[in-house]
Measured scan of single mutants.
Amino acid sequence: MGFKLLSKLLVYLTASIMAIASPLAFSVDSSGEYPTVSEIPVGEVRLYQIADGVWSHIATQSFDGAVYPSNGLIVRDGDELLLIDTAWGAKNTAALLAEIEKQIGLPVTRAVSTHFHDDRVGGVDVLRAAGVATYASPSTRRLAEVEGNEIPTHSLEGLSSSGDAVRFGPVELFYPGAAHSTDNLIVYVPSASVLYGGCAIYELSRTSAGNVADADLAEWPTSIERIQQHYPEAQFVIPGHGLPGGLDLLKHTTNVVKAHTNRSVVE
Results as ranks from 00 to 15, higher is better:
V257P: 01
V189T: 03
A87Y: 02
F26N: 11
T153K: 10
V121W: 01
A209M: 07
H252M: 01
H115S: 00
C199N: 02
S208H: 11
G177A: 03
A51D: 10
A133L: 13
G72D: 05
Y196P: 02
V212W: 05
S139Y: 11
W55K: 00
K251D: 14
V75I: 08
T86Y: 03
I84M: 07
R46T: 07
A130C: 06
H154D: 07
S162A: 15
I186P: 01
R206H: 10
E147V: 13
T140K: 05
A213P: 12
I151N: 08
G148M: 07
A98K: 11
N92R: 05
V112H: 05
E44A: 12
V132N: 02
G78E: 10
S193R: 14
G197K: 00
E33S: 10
A200H: 04
V265T: 13
W55L: 02
C199V: 00
P232Y: 06
T109D: 06
V265R: 12
A90K: 09
T86R: 02
V189N: 01
F26V: 14
S38V: 08
M18R: 09
S70M: 06
K91D: 15
Y48C: 07
L73V: 05
G72R: 02
P23V: 11
L5S: 15
P41A: 15
A136S: 08
Q103H: 15
L204D: 09
G89Q: 00
A234V: 08
L159C: 03
F116D: 03
V54E: 02
P221A: 10
L195Q: 00
W55V: 02
N71S: 06
T182E: 13
S22I: 10
T140M: 02
I238N: 04
R110S: 11
E267Y: 10
A98C: 09
V45A: 08
S62L: 07
I186N: 06
A133E: 14
G105K: 13
G123V: 03
A178P: 14
V189S: 03
V194S: 01
H115P: 04
G78Y: 08
P170K: 06
N255H: 11
M18L: 12
G245V: 03
G32S: 10
G72S: 03
Y202R: 06
D79C: 05
V212P: 09
G2R: 11
E99C: 07
P221G: 09
L217V: 11
V42R: 10
D77Y: 06
R46Y: 10
N211Y: 07
V54S: 03
G72T: 00
P244C: 01
G105Q: 11
G245K: 00
V108C: 02
T261P: 14
V189Q: 00
G177Y: 02
A192E: 09
V108D: 02
G65L: 07
V132A: 06
I100T: 07
I84A: 03
N255M: 10
H115K: 01
R120Y: 01
D164V: 07
G72V: 02
L247K: 14
K102T: 11
F63C: 07
K258N: 11
V75P: 02
R263G: 15
V37E: 15
H57F: 03
P41W: 07
P69M: 15
Q229K: 14
E219W: 04
G32R: 10
L81W: 02
L6G: 11
A66L: 15
Y231H: 06
D29W: 12
V54N: 03
H57N: 04
V126N: 04
E172V: 04
L127M: 03
Q228E: 12
R167C: 07
T36D: 15
V126H: 07
A144Q: 01
T254Y: 13
I84K: 00
V28C: 06
E219M: 09
G210E: 08
Q103P: 06
Q228I: 11
S223K: 01
G105C: 06
V42T: 13
I224C: 00
L6K: 15
S160I: 11
I40V: 15
